[in-house]
Design a protein around this nucleic acid. Structure first.
Length: 614
RNA sequence: GCGCCCGUAGCUCAGGUGGAUAGAGCGCUGGCCUCCGAAGCCAGAGGCCGCAGGUUCAAAUCCUGCCGGGCGUACCA
């Protein structure tokens, strides 16, 4: 196995160091993939050694290069401060393929965190409008970090919080009564979440009209125009009605609750459909309406215990000045709760439900400060587990003409995006099918074409959302998001499908990857393109570990593009099935099969499907 | 004002805890389908890594200042 091989080399290096420099404290040695094939397969930077030995790095590399001798090592070269190791070809390919194709121990996955539990909260939509690309980035990131954490052994709970109560849904409800009475998603032939979203937009539009009228009146009366919003708040019938709606909801008014349940039900049906298309599911869904009272009780309890204080006006606040965060109000002077109040309740609820070692919030960086305040509050309230809370902060999604404004409907809707991408992928699939030179089994019917188009469409969208550093905000360019060529999901998927195609053809010839050893295939491998593929395959476990540790799907996306690119170069220049000898054929087939499993596994860590054909 | 984040090729971005000639995609120019699927491959042009100092044997990477952008700084959600 490849890991054993690396360990063997590290052990040998260790010995050589002791032989050469006497009894010195040797730092942990880590072998990294060499940056370029010409240099070798693995590299050891001698900088840490230089520190301990107080010798020039280049000198150390030269000393060690002359002494390291192992059967599995073909050549050791010192290049400046680096020790570059070229492995014995057949040994390298053989152990690599054996690792990659091992049926019981999935290559690249580890159980380093076996027995540890992590809860990841993501998506967390409001129920007054459909999901847009901002949510999609959140969802796709959340899903991928879950997969990455699972890949290193964590027991992962995928959780979602639905903000199903509050003033926002009351706005949609108010607008529904006024402008869409008696209508339903069915009567309108519309997804439920889209219908409720239209209600919300209608509310915004009606309010804007009232505002314009009021502004005109104020101007006529010669009043200060700066007071428009203030006056609107107090004079608008619509605003009054909405606030009244919220009050009645809290009081449990049956009619209000009934409308709320109905409209939320429409939204959930719509969300479920969108999640289904995205291939997302949650282990646990929390509803704000079910836990918001919980936070209130916790705060009142803390008040009794003297951990928080009551201000002169009746509001309850916590002093976080020890954390440099000043005071934070936790209950309004009228006794009602704030957003942070339910956040406290939710945090406690999550702990009681799952007691996770880590609890990750996938939330935009606009809430960095609020998250800091929440964590500090929980810590100050005496919850020791608050140390395990993490904010996975990602950058906002912008549109080419600025930030997303849901209130104005300036959004790219998640469903629309998937529709558009699907249409494009479908056209491409039909075009490919019409061409010659492919081995599509039989004549795929419409449903089969659509199944493939769906896989590619989602691959494109997810990869586009994941390939950028999550910390940075990114601008969503519609043309780029639906691209099928270049550094995209379909590029990696295509490579996978091509390998599948080769494997199918080989199978038809009675050839399978596991014949490589018997056929002497590993001895037949070794050109630069093959070694380049091997060099990258070698780096997969480290890529998974690194991406999981830094919660960085973009690292994995980058890795997969590199692997796919190296493989494309390889099989473009070296035919697998038309190789010169049977041994070469068998060796290349095995290398291809190994690449395929890594591509599939890597794509899975991004939440992307690896298609058999495209 | 204060806090956090960002500024790398025409455009969009990579460049884990400083280290081997600064990379990729798109776009542009020019090649490759009697050859395992051209959603592919190859070549070329294109960069005072925002500016100025500093630390270091070594800085795109660390420190300071400045310039330019983003997001926060609610008894909103």
């Amino acid at each position: 196995m490849i890991e054993a091989l690396k360990q063997e080399i590290i052990r040998a290096l260790h010995e050589v160091i002791l032989e050469t420099y006497g009894d010195v404290p040797v730092p942990r040695l880590s072998l990294e993939p060499a940056p370029r094939v010409e240099l070798g397969d693995l590299s050891l930077g001698t900088f840490p050694l230089a520190k301990v030995l107080r010798r020039a790095p280049a000198r150390i590399a030269a000393d060690l290069a002359g002494r390291l001798k192992l059967d599995c090592v073909e050549e050791v070269k010192a290049t400046g401060p680096y020790l570059n190791i070229r492995l014995h070809g057949p040994t390298l390919f053989k152990s690599l393929v054996a690792s990659a194709l091992h049926p019981d121990r999935p290559y690249g996955l580890s159980d380093a965190h076996r027995g540890q539990r992590v809860l990841v909260e993501f998506s967390s939509p409001n129920t007054n409008k459909p999901l847009h690309i901002g949510h999609v980035r959140n969802i796709v990131l959340g899903w991928s970090i879950c997969r990455l954490l699972e890949a290193v052994g964590y027991d992962v709970i995928k959780a979602c919080l639905v903000n199903d109560r509050g003033i926002h849904i009351c706005k949609s409800m108010t607008a529904y009564r006024h402008f869409f009475p008696g209508q339903t998603p069915e009567s309108r032939g519309q997804k439920g979440d889209h219908f409720v979203g239209d209600c919300y937009l209608a509310y915004g539009k009606a309010l804007a009209a009232e505002r314009d009228a009021l502004a005109a009146r104020l101007e006529q009366e010669g009043a200060d125009p700066a007071t428009v919003d203030e006056r609107l708040e107090s004079e608008s019938a619509l605003v009054r009605e909405t606030r009244d709606m919220l009050r009645r909801w809290e009081a449990g008014d049956p009619e209000t609750r009934e409308l709320w349940r109905t409209m939320n039900g429409w939204v959930y049906a719509g969300f479920d459909e969108t999640y289904r298309r995205l291939g997302i599911r949650f282990d646990k869904t929390y509803h704000e309406s079910e836990i918001y009272q919980r936070g209130r009780e916790i705060v009142l309890d803390a008040l009794e215990k003297g951990r928080v204080e009551r201000d002169g006006d009746g509001s309850v606040f916590i002093d976080l000045s020890h954390a440099g965060l000043g005071h934070k109000v936790l209950l309004r002077s009228d006794g009602t709760s704030l957003y942070i109040t339910q956040d406290i309740g939710l945090a406690v609820q999550k702990w009681e439900d799952f007691s996770p070692d880590r609890s990750i919030y996938v939330i935009g960086n606009e809430q960095n400060h609020q998250m800091k305040v929440l964590f500090a509050t929980l810590k100050t309230l005496g919850f020791a587990w608050a140390d395990g809370l993490e904010h996975f902060s990602y950058g906002m999604v912008f549109l080419p003409d600025g930030i997303i404004k849901t209130r104005e409907g300036n959004v790219v809707d998640a469903d629309d995006l998937m529709d558009e991408m699907f249409t494009k992928a479908r056209e491409k699939a039909i075009e490919t099918l019409a061409g010659d030179a492919n081995d599509w089994a039989g004549t795929p019917g419409d449903t089969e074409i659509e199944r493939r188009a769906h896989i590619v469409a989602l691959g494109a969208i997810k990869h586009y959302m994941l390939k950028y550093n999550p910390k940075k905000e990114f601008t969503f360019f519609p043309e780029e998001s639906i691209r099928l060529t270049g550094d995209t999901g379909p590029y990696v998927q295509y490579t996978h499908a091509r390998i599948r195609s080769i494997l199918r053809k080989a199978e038809a010839e009675g050839l399978s990857p596991d014949q490589a050893e018997a056929e002497g295939g590993y001895e037949a491998l070794g050109n630069d393109d093959e070694r380049e593929v091997a060099r990258i395959l070698l780096a997969f476990p480290a890529a998974v570990e690194g991406a999981a540790r830094s919660l960085s799907p973009s690292m994995m996306a980058k890795y997969l593009t590199e692997l796919a690119s190296a493989f494309n170069r390889f099989y473009h220049d070296h035919s697998v099935l038309h190789a010169d000898t049977r041994a070469q054929k068998a060796g290349r087939l095995a290398l291809s099969a190994a690449t395929r499993t890594v591509l599939e596994r890597g794509l899975d860590l991004l939440g992307i499907e690896a298609p058999e054909v495209m």
